[in-house]
């Protein structure tokens, strides 16, 4: 196998090429890694920057009488759309958390209804469910009170309509204290 690769001209060419490439690269890098070259590159970069800036300023000035948009104008429009996207993204996040909260609440309520005793659920439905399932007697009393209040209130309304100036059935304190 080694003999075969030694004979293969392409393999030889590849090895030779890689070696030469490495040698040349090393030379180039050594050449570029010199203080004088670095200083010269730094100076040239500033000169180029000034020239490019001048051209850009001229284009900006010319864009006014020619009534043409520049790269900056286009970038500004793009920035606006990015801002809008960010706002939508924020809303999307908030909406996601709200939906999550609602889902959690729904699940808790469902759980409360099913078991009648969810330790983390403090909604009125869950409380009522717990009351009715765990303490039937108390729940019955609450319902009776509600019925009594309703009937008294209806009686008072009826009486007031029939005799608005002097209603006969008076809703005294005693009656309300049920």
């Amino acid at each position: 196998m080694p003999n075969k690769s030694r004979k293969d001209p392409y393999q030889k060419l590849k090895l030779l090429g890689s070696k030469k490439e490495q040698q040349m690269n090393q030379k180039i890098q050594e050449l570029l890694n010199k203080k004088e070259y670095i200083q010269s590159a730094a100076q040239h970069s500033q000169v180029i920057a000034h020239k490019v800036k001048k051209i850009q300023d001229s284009v900006e000035k010319l864009s006014v009488p020619f009534n043409i948009p520049t790269k900056k104008d286009v970038a500004n429009v793009a920035k606006l759309s990015i801002q809008i996207e960010e706002k939508i993204d924020d809303m999307d996040e908030k909406l996601f958390y709200l939906i999550n909260e609602i889902e959690e609440l729904k699940q808790k309520t469902k759980k409360g209804k099913n078991t009648g005793d969810s330790p983390y659920d403090n909604t009125s439905t869950a409380r009522n469910n717990r009351a009715s399932s765990n303490r039937p007697y108390a729940a019955k009393r609450v319902n009776e009170k509600k019925k009594k209040v309703s009937s008294l209130f209806i009686a008072y309304l009826r009486d007031s309509l029939q005799n608005p100036k002097n209603p006969s059935s008076k809703l005294g304190e005693r009656q309300w204290q049920i």
Partner: peptide, 19 residues
């Protein structure tokens, strides 16, 4: 490979910010 460049950048002698 470019230790001189790194040194000059650290010293602040080379700055491409304007470009």
């Amino acid at each position: 490979t470019f230790d001189q460049w790194a040194a000059e950048i650290k010293k602040g002698n080379v700055n491409f910010d304007e470009l």
